[in-house]
Every structure is written in structure tokens, then in C-alpha cells.
Nucleic acid binder design. Structure first.
Lengths: 193, 193
DNA sequence: TGTACATCAGTGAACGCGCGTTCACTGATGTAC
DNA sequence: TGTACATCAGTGAACGCGCGTTCACTGATGTAC
């Protein structure tokens, strides 16, 4: 067990970010320790600091990756909807609200507590970039073959409502009014034009 | 410094819950230690367990209190709006979005991470009760002197959007599109009928 | 009402635990000649 | 191409710290007679 190849080391680094992105989204940044990430890859904690300066540095990269992945996922859903002639915003809302495997959890919800904390300007900026990209992706519809970004009141409101309903859903469990809320958000997306 | 009066003890207990409610909402449940709550009252940690079985027990009571306070606050805002003949939902959205002192932070945002965690059924139920009460409060308008609960799609969507916009605002700081989002939510509330 | 004893709110120090981070070490990889 | 040495990815144990919780203790309060 000696020194690794440069390529191996680079791959290990990428795997750490990848696994961190998955675990952070599943359980939350504070609930996942550096050791947990490393052990999940069959590695030991000590080696972590050969790749990253601190846990915060890893969180920053994992946040970027998580937002990129979410954005790509939304993009795919939107394209599929466009091919069918459907409004991509409805498709994204449906996609978002589906209870998929926890590692697909929305990065906006997973990283919000981390970025909200005091003295985290850099994290907040990163979060703002990622969330802004998702908002753009959400509001971009294809009209006559040309992608047209929309930012009207209703689009913005449905975007925010989708997130608000999701956070309540995770915290309130299966309260009877939760189903109503989710359906309302989906219905509102359906009435966008 | 010997034994306290029964009344003093009861008051101390109430003060602990009160201060915890304030600190939990300001900084988040996980960021506030039991010692911090006690010290903020000029007490020492040891005595805490004479009043509560565990930190989780305190969180439960602080959560209830926080929701009750928020509900009462919304109620006051709604009544004032009704007297002026305004839709209370617009007033509540404005009230909610104002950046007031941090101890008035929304309990739905402050306690969501705690309630969302695994193996917290009781906390989730508590959260659901509190959030459900706020939703009812939000949707109750006075029509011809009689309080009428509304739960139409648009009311539900604006409620969720108000929360979603707030969480993004806290995590994304002052991103340029945040102002747009908040204004959109307020505008949507204005169009409720 | 007064006295003797039990109770228990609050103190201050300690415990055990998990965490982020550091460190001495190993040995295969990379490099200089 | 071969050899000698420096580098450094990964290991495993340790460190320091803050946390939730426990505990022996104090002395005023509460209670039984």
C-alpha cells in the first residue's frame, strides 16, 4: 500500500467528491463526517487531507457537482418534455416532486442549512450560482424551436412553491394537507403559459 | 444558592423553553448547545436535567412554543389587515418577508432540518401540527364578518412559495434574482381573491 | 406554631463520544543522472 | 536503460475540542409530626 499513480490519485479525488455529493444530499452536510465519506470508498480518513485542505473545501466542490448534476437532470427532463410538446416546467415539477432515491435529493434543500450559516460568504455565493442556474433552467421553454427564458411572476412563484412544498414534505412527513399542497403546486405548473 | 421555590423553578423552566425557542430560531437547533441556552439565562448546564429529560425534549417544547408564537403573530397581522379591508394573506406575506430581528425567524425553516432527520417521527408530527396550523391561519380570510378558511390551489401555492423564497433568500444571500423572486411572491399574494 | 427531616433546584466538575485535523510512517511512483 | 533518491497517496493512531449527559454536593424549601 504505497504511493498511487497520478491518475489513480486524481480518480480517488474525483470519487471522494462524487461520494460526498451523494452522502451530503442524502443525509445533510453536518450529518456526514469526513471519515464516513472515506470509509464509504474503502479508504481511511488520514488520506483525505492529501486531497483537500478541509471539510469545507470538499463541501464547496460537492456543492458545485451536486448543482451541476441536478441541472443536467432537469435539462434531460425538459428536453423530453419539449419533444412531446409539453411545457418543460410541468415536467420538472413532476420530476422534482417524485420521491426518488434519496441521493437524488435536491441540492437546494441539502446545502441550504450549510450555506445559511454565519460567516459563509463563499458558500452563499456558490449556492446562489447553483440555484440561479436551476431557476434559469426551470424557466427556459422552447417556443418555435428557440429556447426562451421566462421569468414572469407565475414562473418564479411556481419555482419557489416547488421548493417550499418539498421542504415541508420532508419535515412534516405525511400530514394530510401535504398531498393537497403538492397537487396544488403541480396544478399551478400546469396553468403556466 | 440552594433549592428554589416551586414557583421559581416553574418560571426557570419556562424561561429555558423561551430562550431555547429564540436561540433555535436564530441559529438553528444543531448550532445551539444546551449549555448555551442555560448560560444565556445566567444558569449552569448541570441544572438543565432537573427540568428536561434530554435536549430533544427541550426541542419539542421549544418547537411548540415557536409555532404558537408565530401563529399568534400572524393572527395579529391578519386582524389588522381585516380591519383595513385588506386581504390578510398579502399582509402575512409582507410580514413574513420582512427582514426582522433573527429571533423572529420562521419556525418552519428553523426546525425543518431537525424534524427531517431519520427516526424522528414525533418531531415530524409536531412539525406537521405547527405547520398545518400556520397554513390554516394563512388561508383564513374574513368574508362578511365570518372567518372563512380557504384552501384553493392559489392560496396553497403562495403559501409554499413564500417559504421556498425565504429558504433560498437565507442560503443565497443577496443574489440579483432574489429580489425578483420575493416580489413575485408578494405580487402573487396580491392577486389572490 | 415549632422542630426535624426529606426533597430537590442549581452548581461545578467530570465522563464518554464523535468530530475535524495532524502526524509519523510505509512503500510504490516519479525523477534526476 | 539502469540506478539512487525524492516524492507523496494512503495508513492507522493520536490530538484537541465541543457536545450531551451524569454525578456528588449544597443549602433553602417543603413536609410530617
Amino acid at each position: 500500500m504505497g504511493r498511487s499513480t497520478k491518475e489513480e490519485a486524481a480518480r480517488t479525488r474525483a470519487r471522494i467528491v462524487e461520494k460526498a455529493s451523494e452522502l451530503f444530499r442524502t443525509s445533510g452536510v453536518d450529518q456526514v463526517s469526513v471519515a464516513e465519506v472515506m470509509n464509504a470508498l474503502g479508504l481511511t480518513v488520514g488520506g483525505f487531507y492529501k486531497h483537500f485542505e478541509s471539510k469545507d473545501a470538499l463541501v464547496a466542490e460537492a456543492m458545485d457537482l451536486s448543482f451541476d448534476r441536478a441541472s443536467a437532470s432537469w435539462e434531460a427532463v425538459a428536453q423530453k418534455a419539449n419533444l412531446k410538446g409539453l411545457d418543460p416546467r410541468v415536467a420538472i415539477v413532476r420530476h422534482y416532486q417524485q420521491a426518488r432515491s434519496p441521493e437524488h435529493r435536491c441540492p437546494m434543500l441539502a446545502f441550504a442549512p450549510h450555506a445559511s450559516r454565519d460567516a459563509r460568504e463563499a458558500a452563499r455565493d456558490r449556492f446562489a450560482d447553483g440555484a440561479g442556474a436551476l431557476l434559469d433552467r426551470f424557466g427556459t421553454t422552447v417556443v418555435g424551436g428557440a429556447p426562451t427564458p421566462k421569468r414572469d411572476t407565475e414562473t418564479l412563484v411556481v419555482f419557489a412553491a416547488m421548493i417550499g412544498a418539498q421542504i415541508l414534505s420532508q419535515a412534516a412527513g405525511s400530514a394530510p394537507w401535504m398531498a393537497e399542497l403538492r397537487q396544488a403546486v403541480e396544478a399551478a405548473a400546469g396553468e403556466l403559459g
